[in-house]
Design a binder for these strands. Structure first.
Lengths: 212, 212
DNA sequence: AAAAAAATTAATCAAATAGTTAAACTTTTT
DNA sequence: AAAAAGTTTAACTATTTGATTAATTTTTTT
């Protein structure tokens, strides 16, 4: 490996830098086990390196965790937030885009919702500080809902409840994945097929619920 | 305290037995911090006793955790499961009862959904064994949904998706409580008012979504 | 190719933490 | 009231685990 600090692609093989190997390993261990359940040794083993190297690249467990949490929470909130507050979409279009994007991100990162919610519940102060400028009141969406009600396009509804419904229907199945899989007796593959189907399903479900 | 092994009520004061004090303390610490985040010392402090007493009453941290997890998961699943599989309610009545009961249980035990989901994700094997006979396929409900579709009472819908929707809309707001509170800038009291309102809201929302 | 810098490891440390033990204290039994 | 059984504590042990250090190897610079 000629370059030690960057990712290199040599003869169809992808070589990750040590720092990247650590990130990949830490992502896996932290998202599965949480901050308190993760072990630095497990991350080192997963990355195939010495435990001391973790501290050489990232000073402490907390610092490494913050990196992973920030990356994960941004992945989860950034796209959805942008859609929620977009000015270019009408209400129905917006609901469709939010749900499809949200579920797609979760299909690609199925552990992240449970990871974020778990840490948010176990350490609300940290999360409050950390996500204060990431999570904002969905002002534009709430306005559009109110407007839809006033114009008689949708049934009267508390915009906050509708917003919760949109988020709940997209995120919860991934959080309850092991429970649902036990309940329905389905494989990972079958679960992800359900989630693909779910993109359209939830959009229809919500539109049917609110449209007049 | 005359009786050392039972709860006693003396002059309007409730005295808990040591075992009960441990359970109450362990419930609080485990549901907040999870298995890996909880400390036996914290539980002892919370119960106002010596750490060795925890091991005198419950052999190990794992044993004590199992007790709390079993109690919590039963509280969450038993009532809802009974309603889901009840033969005495038609589809719409059943949806109404499930949601109202589910949200009510969560209002009374707001930490439990996140607690269960967290452990289920971090230790799926344990949960699979533990909840195998608690969590079952909602056969009766699925049948009723299929029947409703056949009779033209409700729109065509995948019963599995509808079941997920019912559970998602009831449970997710409690799991995302700190996130929603940060987002909306609301107090605990305001949050619980929203959840009270939510019982009727979710029932209406779902009925509107499926009714023909 | 020698020197310097950077990356990596083995060994070790120190704090945290689940669990144990033996003694003291309290309640119940005889 | 003496003995036995049950409860509680203080002190201790063993292990886990995040973090450090000093030496070794590899890479880069001169």
């Amino acid at each position: 490996m000629t370059e030690s600090n960057k990712t290199a692609i040599i003869k169809d093989q992808i070589y990750l830098s040590t720092e990247e190997k650590i990130i990949v390993a830490a992502r896996k261990v932290f998202t599965k086990k949480g901050l308190s359940g993760a072990r630095m040794q497990d991350i080192a083993d997963e990355a195939g390196i010495n435990k001391a190297l973790l501290h050489y690249y990232f000073r402490s467990k907390d610092k490494l965790f913050e990196k992973i949490f920030e990356e994960g929470s941004k992945k989860m909130f950034m796209t959805v937030n942008a859609l929620v507050e977009s000015a270019d979409l009408n209400l129905f279009q917006k609901i469709e885009k939010i749900i499809e994007a949200h579920i797609q991100i979760e299909i690609e990162n199925p552990y992240i919702p449970a990871f974020i919610m778990n840490e948010a519940n176990q350490n609300p102060e940290f999360i409050k500080k950390f996500l204060q400028d990431t999570i904002k009141l969905p002002i534009k969406l709430v306005e559009q809902i109110q407007e839809g009600i006033n114009l008689g396009h949708i049934r009267p509804i508390n915009p906050v409840q509708l917003f919760m419904n949109i988020m709940s229907l997209s995120a919860f199945p991934f959080i309850a994945k092991p429970i649902f899989q036990t309940s329905f007796g389905i494989t990972d593959e079958q679960f992800f097929m359900l989630m693909e189907q779910r993109k359209k399903h939830v959009v229809e479900f919500i539109i049917n619920a609110i449209k007049l």
